[in-house]
Design a protein around this nucleic acid. Structure first.
Lengths: 206, 206
DNA sequence: TAGATTGTTAATCGATTAACAATC
DNA sequence: TAGATTGTTAATCGATTAACAATC
């Protein structure tokens, strides 16, 4: 395998993949670096450079074939496979996450949903039955889940994080505002739109 | 006003602000660059450098006073005030967004909620009454909303984006997977956790 | 004092982009 | 051919971080 990508390149390639996946859904077959750049908010030269580092994927005067570019980027990111997600929290947010097509589009699927509310346990969420939070650790081990999503009230987040980590989950997506303490080998990604708003607003205000 | 910050610095300052705000909520009064760095996943030297560009906010041997550091960063980002958000979509996702404390913590407040489902219009969401989607443009003008959040099904996203832009909204947060076409002066931020997962998974797999 | 932590330097490294030849 | 768009160069610019003196 080639060198490890830098943070910036990997982030941008993920963005391109999202744009390409969605463009394909809309029936498009090819796309230019200019169009990708419009949706990704990056310079078009940057797009071409990011891609040309790994091969000559485009056709001069024409653009990039969407299908094949998706495959190329998936190969670069090693993320063409299927990946199991453990989702904790079956409330409004958890339901929204389970219902969304976003994950399925990129090869992720929710393998189990947990909640600690007896009124929700045993209920259906899409094709899944809501399982009790007390089984998080054992079920994650069984499923071999590497990815965990925390969509609980903030007060439960740390406890849930502990159970997920104990179950072998290595990447936590934290939708609560709680700061989580986790073992060194676990990475926490916090999903906080307010943080992005601050950032967006700064550039608007200046 | 000083120079415009680079993308990276502004993004990191926003992250620090989230961490500081949450640490204060937990009752802490001071924090070290090492602690900030643990939560932000950046190098501690980077944290100190980011801050020291704007002044000497810390105390050697002690760390940073959380309260005053929050004020300093808010001043740098010009985001200490209150900002109105127009939220479109009162389903699971919209409800989760309206209920979350994340926005309030950073001076954002949902000023109006819209939906096009007659069963939802007129209903309560927190302190707000759900308004018909047909009034988005006029209400955004009235409210002077600069920020819009699209939490509808994907099929309605483009139409909603058009109405928000028409109403003077300049920054759109798009929670759907739809690629939006907007006027040049409008910025779209797409919230797609699957994209972040691809990225996180790459670093886990390599 | 001893320990901790900041602020800053200095060096390296990677990111960015205008410009344009290549080529479809 | 004419127009469009890629791939690549070359130059600049900003980001990153180890190391350490300053100082609480």
């Amino acid at each position: 395998m080639a060198e490890k990508l830098t943070l910036g390149v990997a982030a941008r390639l993920s963005t391109y993949l999202r744009i390409l996946t969605q463009s394909r859904k809309q029936g498009l077959e090819s796309i230019s670096s200019q169009e990708i750049s419009d949706y990704a908010n990056v310079n078009p030269t940057q797009v071409r450079r990011d891609l040309s580092t790994f091969g000559k994927f485009g056709k001069r005067g024409v653009g990039y074939k969407i299908d094949s570019l998706i495959s190329e980027i998936q190969a670069i990111l090693h993320t063409g496979g299927e990946h199991a997600i453990a989702l904790v929290g079956a409330g409004n947010l958890g339901s929204a996450i389970a219902t969304s097509a976003m994950f399925k589009d990129h090869g992720f699927h929710i393998a189990a949903v947990f909640d600690n509310d007896p009124r929700r346990i045993g209920g259906q969420l899409q094709e899944l039955v809501v399982e009790p939070a007390s089984t998080i650790t054992s079920r994650c081990r069984e499923l071999g889940a590497v990815l965990g999503v925390i969509a609980t009230p903030p007060g439960s987040a740390q406890e849930v994080a502990d159970q997920l980590a104990e179950g072998g989950v290595k990447i936590l997506f934290n939708y609560t505002e709680t700061l989580l303490n986790v073992p060194d080998e676990v990475i926490v990604h916090t999903i906080n739109p307010a943080e992005e708003m601050l950032y967006a607003l700064y550039f608007y205000l200046t």
